[in-house]
Design a protein around this nucleic acid. Sequence first.
DNA 1: GCGAATGTTTCCCG
DNA 2: CCGGGAAACATTCG
Length: 243
Amino acid sequence: MPEGPTIVLMKEDLQKFVGEKVIEVSGSEVPENSEIKGEILREIKTFGKQTYLIFDKIIFKVHLMMFGSYSLYKRKDIDTLRLGLAFKDGGMYFYTCVVKVIDESFLLKIDWEADIMSDKWNPEKTEQTLKAAPKMMICDALMNQDIFSGVGNIIKNEALFRVGIHPESLNGNLPPKKLKEIIAEARNYGFDFKKWKKANVLSKHFQIYHQKNCPICGAEVTNKDSGKSKRMSFFCENDQKLY
DNA sequence: GCGAATGTTTCCCG
DNA sequence: CCGGGAAACATTCG
């Protein structure tokens, strides 16, 4: 379910509870003896695919992994409730996900400039990071959450297609112009992803991801596990150049 | 019903 | 000690 843009949408959904007091707590990941009841949700932050729920006495880190989901009401059809927080007029419920309690120092160590969806996103720094790893494949760089936080396999494939770069190209072989292009496109596609996801039309806009034929030349789309991350890449041999 | 999939961490082995 | 590989988690969809 989640890549960075989906998590940003989730945050927008949950934002209305910020400033409200917790009335009831539930879920398998609620720590013993924690006094969350009565606490006020101070802030919600996201970093890539992670979400932080910040209270005075406790901070939760939520990661939906591959199959996680959330709802604003308690779903009875799912028995893997990890964390549920009820407020006066509704609540937030996280299922099948990883929930951890962290402390403030954890938040201070986060490099917010690496988040493709953030206002703090820093393309120049990303360029330097990629240049410093010339033998890394661009597909691995994109999936690396320390470099392109929030990018998942969909964004990786679609962004690479848009700029005509083969997923197995090495960072160091990319001409400066192409390097800048893919960095810009990772974020740009992230916002298209968000817009389409919100309108429930995301998969309609896939050009290469799980597609049969290239929309440019009509050739059959190649798919193979690529890079160290061994995640499926979808690409067109004709229209995406291997650098 | 099988297999794959928008993800990450951990463990085992050479 | 390091890197690679597989396993683990667990749900939905085709």
